[in-house]
Amino acid sequence: MGQQMFFVRKRSANVASATCFVCAKAKRQLQVFFVPVATLTVQKALAERS
């Protein structure tokens, strides 16, 4: 019984760290996508203003 509990807890920890890893990866991809778009938008806004 004790052995099984330990096994389940260990597996859920692995799932948590895998989810965290996926989240970090998604965040990085969003930054790669959004930063150029934001930069372009700012440049366009500045160009229209002047």
Rank of each mutant, 00 (worst) to 15 (best):
C20R: 12
C20A: 07
Q43T: 11
A45K: 14
L46Q: 15
Q29R: 10
T39N: 09
N14K: 04
L46R: 14
A16I: 02
R49C: 08
A18R: 05
V8R: 11
Q43N: 08
R49T: 12
F6R: 13
K44F: 08
C20P: 00
M5S: 12
F33V: 08
F7H: 12
K10T: 14
A45P: 00
V15T: 11
F34N: 12
R28P: 00
F6H: 11
V22F: 02
F33C: 07
E48W: 12
F21H: 01
M5H: 08
K44I: 09
V35L: 14
S50M: 12
Q43L: 06
A38F: 08
Q31K: 13
Q3I: 06
L46S: 10
A47Q: 14
A38S: 04
Q3T: 11
T41F: 10
S17H: 01
V22S: 01
P36I: 02
L46F: 13
A24C: 04
F7M: 15
A24V: 05
M1G: 07
V32E: 13
V35T: 14
E48P: 01
Q29A: 06
V15Q: 03
F34C: 10
S12R: 06
F7K: 12
C23K: 02
Q4L: 06
V42C: 06
R28D: 01
F34M: 12
L46W: 14
K10L: 14
L40R: 13
F21A: 02
A38P: 01
C23M: 07
Q3F: 06
K44E: 04
K10S: 12
V42T: 14
A24T: 03
V37K: 06
M5C: 08
V35G: 00
A47T: 14
K44H: 13
F7Q: 15
M1E: 09
Q29G: 01
V35D: 11
R9A: 04
V22E: 03
F21I: 00
V37Y: 09
L30E: 14
K27L: 03
K10D: 09
F6Q: 14
F33K: 13
A26V: 12
M1L: 10
R11K: 09
A38W: 04
F34W: 15
Q29S: 06
A47C: 10
V32P: 00
L46H: 15
V42L: 11
G2Y: 09
T19N: 07
E48F: 06
G2I: 10
A45C: 08
V32D: 08
Q31L: 07
S12C: 08
F6V: 10
Q29W: 12
N14V: 01
R11H: 05
F21E: 03
M1A: 07
K10A: 11
Q4S: 10
T19M: 10
V35Q: 13
F21D: 02
M1P: 04
K27I: 02
V22Q: 01
K25H: 01
V35R: 10
R49M: 09
A38G: 02
R28F: 00
V35W: 15
M5Q: 09
T41G: 04
F7E: 15
V15D: 07
S50P: 06
K27P: 00
P36E: 05
E48N: 15
S12D: 05
C20M: 06
V37N: 03
E48H: 13
A13Q: 15
Q29M: 11
M1C: 04
R49I: 08
F33T: 10
E48L: 13
Q31V: 06
Q4H: 04
P36T: 08
